[in-house]
Amino acid sequence: MHRRASSPAVAAVAVMVLAGCGGSTPKEAAGSPSRASPAAGAVPSAAAPAAPALKPGEVRIAGQVDKPYTVTLTSLRGLPQQSVEVEYAGAKGQQKHTYQGVLLHDVLKDAQPRFDTSKKNGQLRAVVAATGGGDYRAVFAWAELDPGFAKSQILLAVSEDGKPFDDAVGPRLVVPQDTRGGRYVSELNQLWVGTVDTTVDGAAGAFGAGS
């Protein structure tokens, strides 16, 4: 008649077997942290430098562009101006105004967006995200603001009805073709240019790298 081994002895044998088979030790099984070995040939990636903080009234043009930069109301006033009369429904009811400013397309063009020239009309894959005060954001297709595809006059407005905007508030995005004012982004602080390829095709199908 065989005698049953004591519990401590069984536990010791189990630890030895697990160790020999490459299994987890009781400490690891209990959830203790362990360091993963780096992959062979892996090179630690340096953290991307943080973008400098924006001053009040500055607008950063960034994303998949070769020359990111910032604009202010002062710099915009020195560029060729356009004037548009608009009418739209807003939170305060029906609005009717005259805005003066710079074409959004001209401002973004100077940042040299990176379009996939291997694709037919590669710029039609691009979008522009405009961010304003309170993390408010609206998105545009590139074709909406490109005069080669649309008859729109989307502006970075510097004044409303002849009254200049405050320099610390910055320009306002004006979208004449919209019948509602949701994309009239106030206190604008960032214009991001990118493509939809990452979302549609997955990371492997993305063209270029975001900034």
Rank of each mutant, 00 (worst) to 15 (best):
D110S: 12
K120F: 01
V107A: 00
L104N: 10
N121M: 13
L104S: 08
K119Y: 08
Q100Y: 04
A111V: 07
V127Y: 11
Q100S: 11
L103G: 09
V128I: 15
G122Q: 02
G122T: 03
V128D: 14
Q123I: 11
V128N: 14
V102R: 07
V128W: 15
N121D: 15
K120D: 06
G122A: 00
R125T: 14
L104E: 12
L104G: 10
A126D: 01
D110T: 12
R114G: 05
F115C: 02
D106L: 07
K119C: 03
A126S: 06
D116G: 00
R125H: 15
H105L: 07
F115L: 05
Q123L: 09
Q100F: 04
K109W: 12
P113I: 06
G122H: 00
G101E: 02
V127P: 01
Q100G: 07
L103R: 13
Q123D: 15
V102D: 08
Q123E: 15
N121R: 13
T117L: 11
S118Y: 05
V102T: 10
K109T: 13
T117F: 05
A126N: 03
Q100P: 01
P113Q: 03
A111T: 05
Q112L: 11
V127M: 11
V107K: 00
D106C: 09
V107I: 01
V127S: 09
L124K: 03
D110V: 11
T117R: 05
V102I: 04
D116I: 02
A126V: 11
K120T: 07
H105A: 10
V127G: 07
L103V: 11
A126Y: 03
V127C: 04
V127E: 12
V102A: 06
A126H: 01
D110G: 10
V107Y: 00
A126G: 02
V107S: 00
A129C: 09
V128S: 14
L108P: 12
G101V: 00
T117Q: 10
P113Y: 04
G122D: 00
V127D: 08
V102H: 07
R114V: 13
L104M: 15
Q123G: 08
V107C: 01
L108S: 10
T117V: 13
T117N: 08
L108V: 14
A129W: 09
G122V: 04
L104Y: 12
A129D: 14
K120S: 05
L108G: 10
T117G: 10
K120R: 05
F115Q: 05
G101S: 00
Q112E: 11
P113E: 02
G101R: 02
L108N: 10
K109P: 08
G101P: 00
R125K: 13
K109D: 12
P113T: 02
Q123V: 13
